[in-house]
């Protein structure tokens, strides 16, 4: 049985200028100790999907579907029940380490309050454990850092603090939303390395949300590709890289810088606004393979080889998109 089982997740925002459909009928599972990469351009609904699971979206969002975790449906659970899960069993690392830490409190205080909230540690015990956690995420001289404010730390350090905070209660699932995007390249490698290390040492299941396939390539076990609020492809990481099926995935792969492949390719056009769900393949306007069928029907998700799913009328690994 899987650790997390999401069925038919849809998220809609009600804005001044009408409803916006951010996620449409998303289903997926996450196994114990698995690393799932979730990939797509910004605005494709990947962050929104996972924030909706813990009810972290603004009140303008309406969420439907089910998300079974440890015998309860997260989407139907009471707020109190959910609060006991947040930070304790499912933890988040957000994209912006600069703004995700509260500037008014010491980092030790911010990590400590998770421990005190969920594990009822005393102030002294929380502090001791906090220092251990800072050490675990490889922050040098943690005894000193524990009493510093976020603005005294570099971006990479802050992201490590965020990770320490997320790991504080030894959660079953760690959801990392673009954990490396705001950091420069050398620091990115360190953070990814840390993620791998965590999975090995703690057995935590990790959801790694990113717009960059290169990031998931060496960390993830399985990859889920999203476009315009829908899942368009899902496969074990090796299958996906060896035989990408959806033209969008093919395009994304073209955007991964690889040695010898020359210039970085870009997918022409941009993610459509989700004011209305198209009764067609959402990618069709940008797709070189699109035909009448693509413009008039929503492609169903089908299993093209074992554990490899794609939602496209014309799947295949040829790389015209990137031409």
């Amino acid at each position: 049985m899987s650790l997390l089982d999401v069925e038919g997740l849809s998220v809609r925002f009600d804005t001044d200028d009408g409803p916006v459909h951010a996620v449409d009928q998303l289903s997926f599972t996450l196994a114990d100790g698995e690393v799932l990469g979730v990939v797509g351009e910004s605005g494709c609904g990947k962050s929104v999907s996972f924030m909706s699971l813990l009810r972290l979206l603004p009140e303008t969002a309406s969420v439907s579907g089910t998300a079974r975790f440890d015998g309860i449906d997260l989407l139907a659970a009471s707020n109190a029940r959910l609060r006991a899960i947040r930070g304790r069993r499912i933890a988040f690392v957000f994209q912006e380490p600069m703004t995700s830490l509260n500037p008014a409190f010491k980092v030790g205080n911010q990590i400590g309050e998770v421990l005190r909230r969920h594990l009822s540690l005393s102030r002294a015990d929380a502090r001791r454990r906090t220092i251990e956690l800072l050490d675990l995420v490889r922050i040098p001289s943690p005894e000193r850092r524990v009493d510093e404010y976020p603005h005294q730390l570099s971006g990479g350090m802050r992201q490590r603090v965020m990770i320490a905070m997320a790991l504080a209660c030894d959660p079953k699932i760690l959801i990392a939303d673009e954990p490396t995007t705001a950091l420069d390249v050398t620091i990115q490698a360190g953070i990814l390395d840390l993620m791998r290390d965590i999975r090995e040492r703690l057995g935590t299941a990790i959801v790694l949300i990113t717009h960059n396939l290169g990031v998931v390539a060496d960390v993830a076990d399985r990859v889920l590709v999203m476009y315009a609020g829908r899942k368009v492809e899902e496969a074990p990481v090796h299958d996906l890289f060896a035989r990408p099926q959806h033209p969008y995935t093919v395009g994304l792969l073209g955007a991964v810088p690889r040695p010898g492949s020359g210039r970085l390719q870009e997918i022409p056009g941009r993610v459509p606004s989700l004011a209305e769900l198209p009764k067609a393949c959402a990618f069709a306007p940008r797709c070189p393979r699109a035909d009448e069928l693509s413009h008039s029907q929503v492609p169903e998700l089908r299993e093209i080889e074992p554990r490899h799913f794609v939602a496209c009328f014309h799947p295949g690994p040829n790389a015209e998109v990137a031409a």
């Binding site: 056009g269 941009r270 459509p272 306007p285 940008r286 797709c287 070189p288």
Partner: peptide, 21 residues
């Protein structure tokens, strides 16, 4: 290449903004 830039489907942004306001 057969793609449509989503932004080209919008009308004159200034008139749109005025109408929105």
């Amino acid at each position: 290449m057969g793609f449509v830039d989503a932004s080209s489907t919008l009308i004159n942004p200034r008139a749109r903004r005025r109408r929105l306001l």
